[in-house]
């Protein structure tokens, strides 16, 4: 047995003994995400960093269509809801006219890599001074589990019920590698939040992506490969295991482009 000091109830409640609390910049609204989904953790990490950097009044967020369409319900910052795929264009409009604000988008794979591919690539190619958070779970979660541009080969979804056939449905799009080639991107990384260690790494990447925006050097881009236990029809634990075994080999974690 460890020799842990015993605290009285009164001592536990003292502010100096606080070890964890609700993220300050998250609202009290209950998250609408499925239990086990990574979105809640990613929301929290972004808000923690904005809070720690004291940037609430400087931040304007953009959430387009997908599971995170209601992100503005949970994040206690000024936010704009954008049309499907158009967040990088909306963020461009904001940042060009409000260059001193921290502007970020929070997009899923269908949004960023299918319907919004043009907006994504051109915002990156123009070197917009914005930060893009890209949550890649290989599926359209909100509309009920259809095939996404990042759905893996042979992966079953509602619209690839016999598995994604690359001969007829094309290949999973590695858009993060693609935009990393563009001179307009400054920092490109791929993370996950499925273990405590990965959460800590992801938070560091998010902090860098936010701080780099102040340098006006171009797009900071953080992909987070995440699970969709509901869409993948697995338990949360199974989905994390499946993600490690299948998603990570195709979408390897780590920095893809770091400032020279």
């Amino acid at each position: 047995m460890l020799d842990t000091p015993t605290l009285t109830k009164e001592e536990i409640c003292k502010p100096e003994n606080l070890v964890y609390s609700r993220t300050h910049l998250m609202t009290d609204a209950p998250l609408s995400y499925c239990p086990g989904c990574g979105h809640g953790t990613i929301h929290r990490l972004i808000m923690e960093v904005i809070d720690e950097l004291n940037m609430q009044a400087d931040t304007i967020g953009v959430a387009p269509v997908g599971c995170s369409v209601l992100a503005y319900e949970f994040l206690n910052i000024d936010m704009q809801q954008a049309a499907h795929g158009r967040a990088p264009a909306v963020a461009t409009g904001i940042k060009r006219l409000m260059p001193n604000k921290f502007v970020f988008t929070y997009q899923g794979d269908g949004d960023l890599a299918a319907i919004g591919t043009s907006e994504t690539i051109h915002a990156c190619n123009r070197g917009e001074n914005i930060t893009i958070f890209f949550v890649n779970n290989g599926i359209y979660g909100m509309t009920g589990g259809q095939m996404a541009p990042t759905t893996l080969p042979k992966m079953k979804t509602a619209t690839s019920p016999f598995g994604r056939d690359v001969e007829t449905m094309g290949y999973p799009l590695k858009i993060t590698e693609l935009i990393a080639m563009l001179p307009g991107t400054y920092f490109v990384t791929r993370q996950s939040v499925h273990t405590a260690a990965n959460v800590r790494k992801a938070k560091k990447a998010i902090q860098k992506a936010i701080e780099y925006q102040k340098l006006n050097k171009g797009v900071s881009f953080v992909e987070i490969v995440s699970n969709c236990n509901s869409g993948w029809k697995m338990t949360p634990v199974e989905s994390n295991k499946w993600m490690e075994e299948n998603m990570f080999p195709y979408y390897p974690l780590g920095d893809i482009k770091v400032p020279q």
Binding site: A82, R86, A89, V90, T92, G93, I94, L97, M98
Partner: peptide, 9 residues
């Protein structure tokens, strides 16, 4: 959509 972002500010 750039117009949208600017107008919303």
């Amino acid at each position: 959509h750039m117009v949208y972002g600017g107008a919303a500010c």
